[in-house]
Nucleic acid binder design. Structure first.
Lengths: 216, 216, 216, 216
DNA sequence: TATGAATGAGTATTCATTCAT
DNA sequence: AATGAATGAATACTCATTCAT
């Protein structure tokens, strides 16, 4: 009985946490990083602002968790999409999955890749004062979380090279070119500069050209 | 003498104005639209916040002027770079100039293409209440200022098609694909996810592949 | 026990609210509508400016509530004083109660009858934009809240006329003359131009003369 | 020639000073004491804010001079109106002139008699810190400038008593009662609570009653 | 677990005032 | 005589955060 009750409580707690995270994502998407307001998040879920402090250490922590969730979600989705054994096709799958994730989670994508990515990259590591982090940022060039997807690309290209399907070139360059192109497409499509539909029409052609460019 | 003194004064004034605009662009790029703070702009240039009001009507006016300047600067730079008569080469020139502009004016680039471009696109036209503008934004999908550069791409590709240098395909699609790729490269290079040098290494290859993809 | 604690808390809250209202009235009377400052109100009661926002929606709301309370208080006090059945005596009671209210609540009196009464008269009705209200102000000449006391005077005079105690004259004129005189006395007595004691000495004589003037 | 030119210059200077005073009066009437803005005064007359400092020591000084002018104007107008040799009639003349002055110069009247009269009464004497002045205000009950008109009333009533036209009573009391009544009428008529026309209709009756009350 | 009360820091903006010219 | 540049102080208001309950 006791255990049961405890389980239920934990479940409730987990649920409220998730609810907060969801609301935070929406708030963020609506007002951007600096316009983000804890109070409005609280209002959105019908709790008092204070309550959020029971689940998160503060504003930054909440945003951090939001983005952490986002990256997990993102990694999983990319890996799930990459099913084909043929490297060319797999590259295409990855690219389309990348676009799809961006279009389906525009706020999150912004948060992760466009707005203040620097902030989070370092905050996720969690060390140093803001100034030190700033310096560190300038010194290092270590992408952190995205490596997952990037590694995926690199490995797939390497496999293609091993199979003789792609020319033997620096696979990192190729991977980054692909990534840049898809990132550009997403960035435009989640802004007012290009419609999502247009981006989805362009994507296959763009991918085809780029993947063809890898071949001998 | 008098005239001289006046000239000097006007020059000083113009210079401070430009300084403010620069600082504003950086502030904006660092904190986004909502997080933009006149006071921090003032601090950055070492003047009191009040001083800014001697040069701009207020926050919105300052941001507007910043982005307006940016677009003018951008358009000019792109057109100046596009000198070659051969469409392929010209496309390459445009692409590299685009990258160069982004790397040399990261704050401005962010301001123009990444952050709240929507807001400015409409504000620059200057009609309607904020609410009406919001509705208009959702209804329309009309890019406004960027058309300059975009048109340039489209026309160059059309010329290539006419010359038989490129395959006869929808030139808008091709132009947007090119644009997206370069935009992606810039976006990454001005963030913490890719070093500018890396982007500059990748750019020619990426452009080559994409332009080759246009050929028959 | 719980209920008790809650009651106590509510009481405290109500008390602070009243304290704020009092301070606001004083501030208003001291500096007028435009010079009214939330911060000074806060300082006066020894709380931070922010606290006031927990009790009122903002500056206008606070002023509105202040004046609303004042009118309620005023109406009640006047009516409570008018007990005598003889119209002459009742007029005298009303007049003295009017003076007493002013002397006991000088800040409030200023707020209600001297300073920007126009603003509040319309704000208390709550309709229209400020501009529309401005126009309405100029078009109408409808006193709103004070009618309570004014009506009282008029009715009492009418009763006197019916009883044959007063001459049959336009009772509104007579009422307004009485009102003007008492209002003048109060205005002077709460300013530096006449001492309250002096006003209280004059009042009965003045009332006597005016009421005698009503008689045949 | 020189003298001539100097005269002209002084004239110009005097004229601008008067222009500023006029504009200041209007500004004051439009925005009240605390809402009064030097900059708007400057705008109104088409000069830079700095210029005003060449004619007045600052905001307070400007307002002070405005009110000083007002009192002079007021005294002159009252005395000019009091022509009749019969005390009763003269009282009536004074009363009506008082009303007229108020209705014709509502902003000034407010400034002189309603709003911050205390401030000016002491400022016109010019000694002490604000705090000391506050204390002085509470200690003293010395009306300052208005005495002119008040004295006039008192003397007129005394004359009436000497002539046997009025009952032998404390003339100060009688004068103050008259004054209070007229002041009340003006106060209401320059606010939203009573129309000027209504006040002008009431005035003669009110004066008649009050003056009759003086008679044996 | 949840919250109401309270506050300090920060926001844009306006204004009186000074100083050099 | 007049002004343009600059600033410090003040304004209302919002927000993240803490504390006692």
């Amino acid at each position: 009985m006791r255990a049961n009750s405890q389980t239920r409580r934990e479940k409730q707690k987990e649920e409220l946490r998730a609810q907060i995270l969801r609301a935070a994502g929406e708030e963020f998407s609506a007002h951007g990083y600096d316009g983000f307001s804890l109070r409005r998040v609280a209002e959105r879920i019908g709790y008092s602002p204070t309550t959020i402090y029971l689940y998160f250490r503060g504003k930054d922590d909440l945003l951090l968790e939001t983005v952490r969730d986002g990256f997990a979600h993102f990694d999983a989705q990319i890996e799930r999409a990459a099913t084909h054994s043929d490297p060319s096709r797999r590259l295409c799958e990855i690219g389309l999955a990348y676009l799809r994730f961006g279009l389906e989670n525009p706020a999150l994508y912004r948060l992760m890749f466009l707005q203040r990515a620097d902030f989070f990259v370092l905050r996720l590591t969690g060390i140093g004062t803001p100034d030190e982090q700033q310096n560190a940022l300038e010194a290092q060039n270590a992408p952190h979380h995205r490596v997952a997807a990037q590694d995926f690309l690199v490995k797939t290209i390497e496999e293609g090279i091993r199979r003789g399907e792609f020319r033997a070139q620096n696979p990192i360059f190729q991977a980054d070119a692909l990534w840049a192109a898809m990132h550009g497409l997403v960035s435009l499509a989640i802004g007012p500069l290009m419609s999502p539909e247009h981006a989805q029409e362009i994507a296959p052609q763009l991918l085809e050209i780029l993947i063809d460019g890898l071949k001998p």
